[in-house]
């Protein structure tokens, strides 16, 4: 935006820049436009777009991160099922456990099965009931922890039937319900993140539309002179959208840097002992290396959105003039 008075005619050097450098220059160095730059609104508009891109990057990062976490859960939980043996009048618990272990040892797809000892169950309950509060007269169920081959799982319905036939009062818990609820929460968080992304995009479009309209009406005189000199709407739009290309890209870069810093910080924290930071009660453990390219898409998308919005707005606004 800062233009010195001697830029115009001495552009010999510009034509010599080529390739990547030319591209970088196009994106970062704004050449003088025939349309006056937005002037004072330029910086504030960059900041607004930066804020929008920061939010967009956060939302996108959160969505990706949540997707990773849930993918992990699905594979973790699918590998484990639990059989709960309730006390029954027909058989003693130990007999039931023995019968079930016998069935499991004969079932394909079961990697291992282990009956939890009373101490194990007590250890599981202590965090809730308090140490020493698990008394002997508390009717504790017997639990059998079963590891199954997630790639070739056993027929769980048949297994469930077989178990309840052999041991009345035994229930196969596939963790499905727990898993479904967790996944549901995660999907909701992911959906929310994408919704934020959508709202941020829509807001950006609205802001740029207003800024473009304001710029055009502030420069009505310039537009009229350009028209009378034979400029097509496309020419004016090109001049205006060049300005917004820079605004969008600069704002996007600032937002990207801020959001990457935020994610790196989150990643550092989760590396520590204080437990993972969370988003909507779901752990957000930084970003994977493979996610950063997606974030780099944010400033590019911002520049694209800015350019397209400005172009469409200019074309539509000018069409209403003579």
């Amino acid at each position: 935006m800062a233009e010195s008075d001697d830029t115009a005619p001495d552009l010999d050097a510009v034509s010599e820049r080529k390739g990547l450098r030319a591209l970088v220059n196009t994106l970062l160095v704004e050449t003088r436009s025939v349309m006056p730059a937005a002037g004072a609104t330029g910086l504030s508009l960059v900041l607004v777009i930066a804020a929008m891109c920061f939010l967009a990057s956060l939302a996108l990062g959160a969505a990706l991160s949540v997707a990773h976490v849930t993918a992990g859960w699905t594979s973790d939980l699918s590998g484990a099922i639990t059989i709960e043996v309730k006390q029954s009048n027909e058989m003693s618990s130990d007999e039931q456990v023995r019968a079930i272990l016998y069935i499991l040892s004969d079932t394909k797809g079961v990697k291992s099965a282990r009956a939890l000892t009373k101490e194990d169950v007590t250890a599981l309950l202590e965090p809730w009931l308090g140490a020493g509060n698990v008394t002997d007269d508390l009717p504790l169920p017997h639990l059998i922890d079963v590891r199954i081959d997630a790639n070739a799982p056993p027929d769980l319905i048949a297994l469930s039937d077989a178990i309840s036939m052999a041991a009345p009062g035994a229930v196969l818990d596939t963790h499905r319900q727990w898993q479904a609820q967790l996944l549901h929460a995660a999907r909701a968080a992911e959906f929310l993140a994408y919704a934020v992304l959508l709202v941020v995009t829509a807001t950006t479009i609205a802001i740029i539309t207003f800024a473009t309209r304001a710029g055009l009406s502030a420069n009505r005189e310039v537009v009229e002179v350009l028209h009378l000199t034979g400029a097509r709407d496309k020419f004016i739009a090109a001049e205006v959208q060049r300005h917004f290309l820079h605004l969008g890209f600069r704002g996007g870069l600032i937002g990207l840097v801020l959001s990457v810093a935020t994610f790196l910080l989150l990643g550092l924290q989760s590396g520590g002992t204080a437990g993972e930071p969370s988003l909507f009660m779901l752990p957000v453990s930084g970003l994977r290396l493979g996610d950063y390219p997606a974030l780099i898409g944010v400033p590019v998308a911002a520049a694209l959105v800015a350019v397209l919005t400005a172009r469409i707005t200019v074309m539509r606004t000018l069409h209403r003039l003579l």
Partner: peptide, 14 residues
């Protein structure tokens, strides 16, 4: 906002 040179060159640029 344009220099005299740019003003005069405008029709050609357009």
């Amino acid at each position: 906002h344009l220099t005299t040179y740019e003003n005069v060159a405008l029709p050609l640029k357009i």
